[in-house]
Design a protein around this nucleic acid. Sequence first.
RNA 1: GCCCAUGUGGCGGAAUUGGUAGACGCAGCAGACUCAAAAUCUGCCAUUCGCAAGGGUGUGAAGGUUCGAUUCCUUUCGUGGGCACCA
Length: 1081
Amino acid sequence: MEYDFKKIENQWQKTWKANGAYKVSNDLLKPKYYVLDMFPYPSGAGLHVGHPLGYIASDIYSRYKRSKGFNVLHPMGFDSFGLPAEQYALETGQHPATTTEKNIATFKSQLDKIGFCYDWDREIRTSDPQYYKWTQWIFLQLFNSYFCHTQKKALPISLLIKKYETKGALPKTGEPIPRKHFTATQWNNFSKKEQEEILMGRRLAFSKYGEVNWCEALGTVLANDEVVNGVSERGGHPVEKKKMRQWYLRITEYADRLLDGLEKVEFSDSMKEMQKNWIGKSEGAEMEFEVKSQKSNVKIQVYTTRPDTVFGVDFLVLAPEHALVAEITTAEQKLPIAEYLTYVKSRSERERLAEVKQISGCFTGAYAINPFNGRAIPVWIAEYVLAGYGTGAIMAVPCGDQRDFLFAKHFNISITNIIGSHYSGEEANATKDAILENSDFLNGLLMKDAMSVANNKIEELGIGKKKVNYRMRDAGFSRQRYWGEPFPIIWTDGIAIPLDAEELPLELPHVDTYGPGPEGEGPLANIKEWTDLTPNPSPKERGTEAPGYINSSVEEWKKTNAFAKQNRKEATAEEDIIWQEVRDRKVGGCKFRRQHPIAGYIPDFVCLEKKLIVEIDGEYHNGEEQKIFDKGRETWLKEQGFTLIRFTNDAVNNNLNKVLKNIEQALVNKENSAEETGANSPLPGRGVGGEVKRETSTMPGYAGSSWYFLRYMDPNNYETFCDRKASDYWNQVDLYIGGTEHAVGHLLYSRMWTKVLFDLELIGFDEPFKKLLNQGMIQGSSRFVYRETGTNKFYSYDIIHDESGFDKIHVDVNMVDGIELDIEAFRKWKKGEFQNAAYILNEGGKYICGVETEKMSKSKYNTVNPDELCDKYGADTFRMYEMFLGPVEASKPWDTKGIEGVHRFIRKLWRLFNDDLKGKVWNDDKASDSELKVLHRSIKKIEEDTERFSFNTAVSTFMICVNELADMKCHKKEVLEKLLILLTPYAPHIAEELWNQLGNKGSVLDAIFPAFNPALLVESTKEYPVSINGKLRTNIELALDLEQAQVEALVLQNEIVQKWLEGKAPKKIIFVKNKMINVVI
RNA sequence: GCCCAUGUGGCGGAAUUGGUAGACGCAGCAGACUCAAAAUCUGCCAUUCGCAAGGGUGUGAAGGUUCGAUUCCUUUCGUGGGCACCA
């Protein structure tokens, strides 16, 4: 019997699906284990071989844990909001929801081919209104919370309001944030707007003005990586900084807890280091320098981590954006300063920090007074000082800071040396170990010790205080885009008013254009009828008409109606249950129809008056008619004002009451939102007479991904983001796998959200991820062909000596065997663009390509599609090969060549059970000791390797084991059966097939991991390596229980050792039991 | 520029806590089987000197610690990732 992987994999994938082998229940009695992958953004290019690396690793670990008796949650979903879909929409006019839906379908089918053990009933998509409803809801929790500095946690803002109303906000010593002080009476007399402004200063999600990259020509805000050398990547238009109202998350309040939390989690040290650096906690002092100027009382606050160097200050530097720049600039410096500001405006932050060798700056003409010695020091502005960090002003100490030093040299500012011989005059020395000189009362002190002395003096003089500073800034939370979560916020008279929870989800409205709105606002600003909620527009203007039947062409209707009838006849048991419950206006008094055609679509149930569709999805996407229904249905129906809710068969069977309650709730919600959009007072009691407008920006990509791990625990809950029982059971993610590119952003945000939810007692843990495993990035290995410039002649890479004079062209890696180009395929490529080219081959008659390692991307033609590999070799081979490539953590270029070796191994394994000609070869003979030894050595190694995520060495262990069993001609069920269980996590399909061939009832997925028996591996002797002076010279077999003295005697008798000793006595003999022997001469 | 990772045969990699460098696999070479091919099996495979026995060199480079360093320390070079609106 031959190994027919196609048949085997197909059959078992079907079987597993049919009997719900991967279904996960919240079984509170079993020990749980939660394995999570960073979910993918469903890009149009589909899955490439880089994606599955981490997924396979997590799949292996999940299956392994299952075989160890755990209830394992290993879900998958899609981070489906994002810029690429929107840009594609901008180019093609296709709605992002449509393209996203399509991309997800591709991703899912690709993932399924590889045979992952996902419970798709738990799938989530961040762009699904039933998901982002809760993203918006959590945003409201953030908006309605503040950070209490006494309890160091988030509390409802209502508590703060109560405090203001009764006690006001009076100064307290040790308050970390200086803020406005007021009494209760004052507070109560403030206008609503004034009160809201103060509260905005404390909310965890808040709005303020912030700078963005603004491109006038494109009329849009650009991401940093869309800006190259100060101009837009698209079109090369100038880009400048612009202030706009933005939403932020006050993540800085959590800086200390984010730092402390790192002690509790198993992240790699480097990952922790990166997060620490990002947070950038530093302890120093803030102090004031008074500016000598015509107007008195201008004081510049600087932040320094080195107050001990205060006598070495030779100048001050302000960030060009600093508020005081205009004020202190002298008349004669006005012009150069203005010119410099124009220059800085065009520079990105990255450029400003990166190009330190390019020194720039401008003197303001003003002088500040050093409060310690009264010295007048010049005040400059320079781009290397950033407005967002510290106070946006620094005191420059050239002898101790290299950037200050270079600046002083460049502009000929004289340098004061306060560290004596530690300063060479050639470069700065940032030491803390020098004895201070030229420093008045600090003279003779070690710098380290001088810090606190200087700090005390600063506080004593009342010119500043000790201050902890963070490099981390509050997280920008708005994007001027369409394809993201709309903010559940409306604005009136400059006050932000949150929607009520019942009004969620606030769904994305249909837009005609994905282009930017006026003044750099997002595309949503273009839809007046959506943004403008000012009372009294007519229903017609709102575009809401009475709901009713929506029919398509007669022919189409007939066709759909036939399907509908058929469906009614063939209703599933679950559909029948629901139908019995909702018919005759039993739920919410609303009329439901079943299998009712709406244009080309046939929803399971629909309430036309409330425009609510209920889908029972069980075996969904199966029938042909369902496909018609599926295709683009969500988008279209949404545009028609329908809301769609889905339940699984499982939910109907096991939790009917909850399902019905959810339907009822949905009807109520529809009623509310109908009021909101239909009536002439959209938001009763909220307008204060003037304009009422919706927030038009949307949330950033990381919003939905900051809490998705919670939704998987309870994905279909209509009442809450995640039931507390579910989150208490599943608790933290035990193992989180993803790339280092998310090292700071995503991980810090989700850690913060988790802490806020914990503070608000919505979940019971404050770190989301217990252990983090970073997978490396699979790079593409690009291939190039070389065309002589201006001709149509392609030269083999090995015969050209100099690449200049040639056009280097990416060629599809799939047309290249190693480095040899398949010329015929190349001729046909790109619609025959190279059909008639001439090929200059090397001596061997081959065309050799150039090779480079780059990021895997469609445009570089270096992507390799996992589907093709699964088709050619099977999923089991593909899975094991990806693991065999190297450690999961390592980045490496993809190379398909080695996959043959893994495939050979799998076939060799097959032949232990079946012979191509003879058929079944396995038998029931009793295993010998040596066979058991091979097996148990493998059990031990596979278990250890899997536990430490060393999947590549585990695969090689399998190879060794199979090689040895084949050499021993061992076909014994007793041994092979155990081997199959070991193999299941890695190659589930073949394992299941052979497991069944051996006559086992039940699935190998549920087989218990075999216990390792150490007794079988006990050895009495060891072949010791013997080194002379650290160099290996020979091996000696010795009993393991020998002691040092006995060993020394035996070693000295050895012929080879004696040869090297040349009659001398050794200086010493080092003996490490069970390891090695070293003779030192 | 700053932060993090990383560098071992022709190639992917192994060496888990400082203890036999190159497991396992790819490619290559030689052979068996075959009319032939595929498949399969056997052997060789860091480099250099040597017929061999055996020796020298060798984990990006330079130094150091150690009986012993791919592993620890210092310096340095190359590559990859991140740097706040890509995800």
